[in-house]
Amino acid sequence: MDYLYFPGCTLYTKAKNFDQTARNCSRLLGFELKEMKNWTCCGAAFPLATDNLMALLPPSRILATAREEGTVLTTLCAVCFNVIKRTNRLIQEDGEKRDKINNFIEKNYQGDLQVLHYLEILKKEIGFYQLKEKVRKPLEGLKAAAYYGCMLLRPFEEMRFDDKENPKLFEEFLEALGTQAVEFPYKIECCGSFQSVGSPDVATECAYKILGSAIKNGAEAMVSTCPMCTFNIDHKQADIKQKYLDFKPIPVFYFTQLLGMAMGLDPQALGFDQNAVDPMPLLKEKGFL
């Protein structure tokens, strides 16, 4: 089965390696990510105050356009996933808002699209047990910390991704790849998000707490599902090192990079050159290259 795919702006720019590896992994797993036509920015934030209609329009337009092409829409970026899934739910449940939105975007969308994250496809449609059997090069001996961040999980009532305080799905995925998933208390903490632009010090502090907690619990690498989190916990490590002299940087992977490596993709095609902290020494030390 092929899945309609919404990449999102960042996966065309800053997270090209995330996009590419996901597409390549899909082919090995027996499905294709079919990019939807004419997608725009998702708006990057679900509107919260009750009468804010404007921010609902970009995700609604995406959903309506995608519905013309298929019935299941998948995303990789956790922020886009959050915005699109919640908007879809709102359109399903609130008839008045639905009519208003349709009037604005000049479409007739009824909310009958299923929005799934790539990890959910791996779990529900393929199954982690089956995934384990498809792994050609198990990443044995790698201690990886699954970092969820906020957007996959919260708000719990709407996302229903996994447990709100102690999710396990991401760890199960990493264990299917052969790694040893590290438990750490900051796995669902916020990375500081867009504060990295306006108040960089705030984001640096948030990232330091998360990384520090993972390292303390034995992590050799972090794994992320979100380009925003990845910017804060990967690219900010240079700033952290300047502030905390005893801090030792650890590589941060997109989960698809590890998936690709375990599936036996050529390491050259996994975009490791775009990671801020060079993962090559660790991968060589573990004998994966």
């Binding site: 999980l153 919260r154 708000p155 916020c190």
Partner: peptide, 10 residues
């Protein structure tokens, strides 16, 4: 300063 991580609401 709120980045809407929703930890509070959860």
């Amino acid at each position: 300063f709120c980045v809407y991580c929703q930890t509070c609401g959860t």
